[in-house]
Design a protein around this nucleic acid. Sequence first.
DNA 1: TATGAATGAGTTTTCATTCAT
DNA 2: AATGAATGAAAACTCATTCAT
Lengths: 214, 214, 214, 214
Amino acid sequence: MGAELREALARRQEAERQERRTRILDAARRVFLAKGYLGTSIRAIALEAELSPGLIYFYFTGKDEIYGRICEEAFHINIDLLEKASATQGSFLERLNALAWAYVDFYRGYPEYFDIISFKDMGFKKVGLTEELHGLLEELSQQSISFLKRAVDEGMESGEIAGTEDSWTISYGLWGVIEGALYIHKRGYLEPLGISLEDLLKQQLRIIESGLSR
Amino acid sequence: MGAELREALARRQEAERQERRTRILDAARRVFLAKGYLGTSIRAIALEAELSPGLIYFYFTGKDEIYGRICEEAFHINIDLLEKASATQGSFLERLNALAWAYVDFYRGYPEYFDIISFKDMGFKKVGLTEELHGLLEELSQQSISFLKRAVDEGMESGEIAGTEDSWTISYGLWGVIEGALYIHKRGYLEPLGISLEDLLKQQLRIIESGLSR
Amino acid sequence: MGAELREALARRQEAERQERRTRILDAARRVFLAKGYLGTSIRAIALEAELSPGLIYFYFTGKDEIYGRICEEAFHINIDLLEKASATQGSFLERLNALAWAYVDFYRGYPEYFDIISFKDMGFKKVGLTEELHGLLEELSQQSISFLKRAVDEGMESGEIAGTEDSWTISYGLWGVIEGALYIHKRGYLEPLGISLEDLLKQQLRIIESGLSR
Amino acid sequence: MGAELREALARRQEAERQERRTRILDAARRVFLAKGYLGTSIRAIALEAELSPGLIYFYFTGKDEIYGRICEEAFHINIDLLEKASATQGSFLERLNALAWAYVDFYRGYPEYFDIISFKDMGFKKVGLTEELHGLLEELSQQSISFLKRAVDEGMESGEIAGTEDSWTISYGLWGVIEGALYIHKRGYLEPLGISLEDLLKQQLRIIESGLSR
DNA sequence: TATGAATGAGTTTTCATTCAT
DNA sequence: AATGAATGAAAACTCATTCAT
């Protein structure tokens, strides 16, 4: 039947199109993460992907879209990791630990993606992203924190968290402690002192533990 | 007297030269902050300063020097504030508080400079800074932390800090908590929730307090 | 067959690429000759070649490469002509004549190239050539003289050249006489007097002839 | 008397004006000869002369006029030297020798001026000199040769020069030999061979001697 | 689809020249 | 007379994007 054939063909074409997009994104990710947004040229991406510069515009509207997609990827991976950690059963502190270490896994496993996410608030507008995309990333950013928020809410209900503070304040406070540790590590000051990120974060979690339970 | 006149003239000219330099630096700071290092063109700075691009080279050797001066300024202001806070007498916790709030003052009073300092560690080579400039900033960055380190060392000596951890680990941990709070605030999530930076930081310091003294 | 077609296409594209390069070099040669190295802008070359300035960087790495290629061409043509003349059999004087007239052929046939070669030694570093390029030209320059040197050496061995001078001194002396005549002609003083370059050079060769054989 | 005073004042002012012009020309000469026409900026000249760039335009119409004056200087010095040598009494060969060595003196004593004169035909139009100035330099250039021409004419009259050639041809031929030797030396090929310019030129003159007298 | 040549606007920087002081 | 700040046009070069093939 002609219709079936056409459909199969269309499917294959769509699949090939996706393959191409992926190929370009893979190349772009490598280059963007190595050279930054402004330091990356379309030609460099094309070279890395082993195809012609012109073709990239067949699959993407331009540099910005590609960069946007990569940002999305970064958030999605981050969210996936946190989501899995969020499924952990146990006390509040166990759940906090799970989330913290999941974030460390992201930081360790996808350092360039971590940079992109951190960059977000410094670099986005600078980078000329569309309002639209920026909105999406904002949303994804909110999702990241939501996992911790849920844990905190439940910890307060169960009385594990003694404080009378707002659960948002506590959530963001905890998040800040975790991110703070990662930033400190990122700057590379710990290494020459023989302190590992794990050492630092363990200490921070211990302080939080005694701080929260008083 | 001719000599006096000439001197007065020279003084005025020098003053005007400084004014111009300041005018350019002011414009440059705004643009760098809005667009990032690579995203900022000399033309844009000139436009912002309302003078011709060529003139900028009359006052500075180039983009790098301008950016360098701004970075230096940022660090020096930061260091000055911390240094003053560092002179506070009292218990370790009082000194920690003084330093934390001094950093908040910097964050609040010089938001653009704060960004530049943070940027330093995110932007890296991607941002295209000179090795030389990066080295200088690294050094100034080390100075910032040294004030807290000193307080921690003395707090450990006096027994105010109970822990057996390395004083570096503690110092960086505390710094991370403070910076983490600022980053959280910076992202703008607190505002719609009606939480102030001060609220958040007070909570963090309280947690630390009970955490450290156990 | 697709393969054949693709090959043919590739060949044509390569040919077109070469054509473009040639087109640019032709334009560049004209402009360089008219305005000198520093006086020539990429824009001017592009204008002469009737294409956009940016495109030139698609075919060449920059002004230096273009100038380098043109210099190389000049020397290679010069060397080719001298080499052919150098194959002449006969007495030393016959060989000297062959080389001298070959140089005149070069001067007449490729006046622009002659200028570039002469320029080399006048323009020097003032002209802003790369060390690398200057070295290459130096080498090629040495090759030019080597043909005459060989003839002189053989002329001294066979006793045709009576003098006891160093063969280098004689070679350079002869070369100087030939070039001197060309420079005189170049300045355009001969024309209004109704003297041709050929007249002048013939006279010079005659003087040399009687001078050498004494 | 007011008139006298005014005159004296005017004289002094004129003298001071000349002094300034000289000061600027001295500075300009140093810079032009070191860096070439296009490589020299008015600022560089002003710096060398230790006065402000703007002032230069008070004494000269622009860069071109300054360069033109320096070219004139070059020719005048050259002509002076040749003129003096031209006063030599003696045989034609003695007079030829005197002129040749005077030219060598110029080449040795004012190497940068020599460059400017040689450059003339390669570089002038390229350099954007006025028609007017170019004409003047052309004239001065003619004067240079005229000294040799006079000697040749007299040498032919007296029978010292045997040839039946046109005296212009002979004059230019001789001039070409001398200049040819200087160019060869200029290129720096002689030095590594241990041959001096004097050696080369002596050889050339000897060849001419026997060539002319046959 | 895919290529890669082509363009035009952009980048940093330099500099002759003018002009208010 | 003298200064030096200011300008505008130029330089070399880069690059996102388009387009004929």
